[in-house]
Computed example of a mutant assay.
Amino acid sequence: MDTINFYKALRGEKLSSSIGDITFTTHYVGELILTSGRLVACDPLAFPDSEAFQKSLPIGKYPVFLIVAHYPRNNDQRVAYAIIRISEETPISWKLGICSDEELASLTENDTLGYPVDSGVGCFMDFDAVKILDDSIYYAYIANPQEESLIDLIQDELRKNYRPTWDWANVCIDKSTQLNIIAFSSGYGDGIYPTYFGYDTEDKIVNIVTEF
């Protein structure tokens, strides 16, 4: 991750580019509920059965923010970073989030390690949400095609929070635990996007950032 640009974006500073100055705004989009502490970052519409990261987090709820880049041409706005804030401490080091050791073992210098996006949407959710999402898809599309799935609900909520060239949704999928999925536009759309874990001086995780 380009940490210099990330911290500039976090502070709302401008970045110079060939098309002019890029400005940034930060948007709070809700608290992510972690019921198992096993975090998943994925495209929930195209790859809802994704794996969790190896690193677990304390069970609890954590604020999620989007840093949106504003480009000078055509009022174009794109989600540049999605952030989970675990604590108020400042990260001093970053490590790439991985789901399995095989990922790093097979990585070459030309590869990008991250999660694939095929619907223009990324998300954060607890691994407990994956089974609920999978069951919903099976029930709606196979067992009872007339039933609306959670995929439809996520898309509906994204449309409600649409603004030019980006959107987001905070969708509760289990009322008893308040388990939720926080979804958002993935930068310029489809691609592969890495997620990084930020650590403080005591080697504790303080931030998780997906870079778009």
Rank of each mutant, 00 (worst) to 15 (best):
G198E: 06
V29M: 05
Y81M: 02
F127C: 11
A140C: 02
N144P: 01
C123K: 05
R38H: 15
G30F: 10
D118M: 09
S119F: 00
P164K: 11
G97N: 02
I59C: 13
S16Y: 10
S186L: 04
G198K: 08
D101R: 09
Q146R: 12
Y162S: 06
T112N: 09
E148I: 06
K8D: 02
I151G: 13
Q146M: 11
S93M: 04
V40F: 11
K160V: 09
C42T: 15
V64M: 05
L34K: 10
I182C: 03
F53C: 04
L179D: 07
L39C: 08
V117C: 11
R159T: 15
I86T: 03
S93V: 00
S56V: 05
V117Y: 09
N75Q: 12
Y188A: 15
I182F: 04
Y115G: 02
G30Y: 10
E13D: 14
I205L: 09
C172A: 09
N5P: 00
M1R: 04
G191N: 05
A46D: 09
A105T: 07
R159A: 15
L113Y: 07
E147Y: 11
V130F: 09
R85C: 10
T23F: 01
A41W: 03
I151R: 15
S87Q: 03
L107N: 08
T165Y: 15
T23C: 00
N170H: 12
S106P: 00
D49I: 08
E13L: 12
V130L: 10
P44R: 08
R11E: 13
A41K: 05
P116Y: 00
R38A: 15
N110Q: 13
N170F: 06
E102G: 03
R78E: 07
L179I: 09
S100P: 00
D101I: 08
